[in-house]
């Protein structure tokens, strides 16, 4: 499941996808790779936090609703560890309150599923530039 596609592995060049949905973990990395990034997928927030990818991640694409630790929980956990990884949230639930909370806490973008490839690319570019 943790399908790393290696590219130019410099410091903090990895895009991490964290989503409990298998079809997202399957489809999104291919698209992101088509954009020209190196990408790795995780099925849970806990799995990502425990991995050695945390220090190499330059942008996190993060689902909100997951069993166990939610996307918002992970955002907080990273902040607690003073890890400033730009986050792009992706969610299937149109919940304005959650969106506002995520953006207030510094998320780069908040995309509702299904989102277009251009919207994702735009968000990725602005995340990586920062």
């Amino acid at each position: 499941m943790e399908s790393a596609q290696t590219g130019t592995a410099t410091e903090r060049s990895l895009i991490a996808v964290v989503d409990d949905d298998e079809s997202v973990r399957e489809s999104l990395p291919d698209l992101i790779q088509e954009f020209g990034f190196t990408v790795k997928a995780f099925s849970s927030a806990e799995g990502f936090l425990a991995s050695d990818s945390v220090d190499r991640t330059c942008c996190l694409i993060l689902d909100i609703a997951m069993p166990g630790m939610s996307g918002l929980d992970l955002q907080r956990a990273l902040q607690d560890r003073r890890l400033k990884i730009p986050i792009i949230f992706i969610t299937g639930q149109k919940d304005e309150a959650v969106r506002r909370r995520a953006l207030d806490r510094g998320a780069v973008a908040f995309l509702f599923k299904p989102f277009s490839d251009t919207a994702l690319l735009e968000a990725l570019n602005s995340a990586v530039r920062n």
């Binding site: 079809s23 997202v24 489809s27 291919d30 698209l31 088509e34 299937g92 639930q93 919940d95 599923k113």
Partner: peptide, 25 residues
């Protein structure tokens, strides 16, 4: 309703992503 939206949007998201990737490839 919220979980229904979630259930439906999940595969829709996969469809859009896969089709986009397909076009790019």
């Amino acid at each position: 309703t919220a979980s229904i939206a979630h259930e439906v949007n999940q595969p829709l998201s996969g469809i859009v992503t896969n089709a986009s990737t397909c076009l790019r490839m």
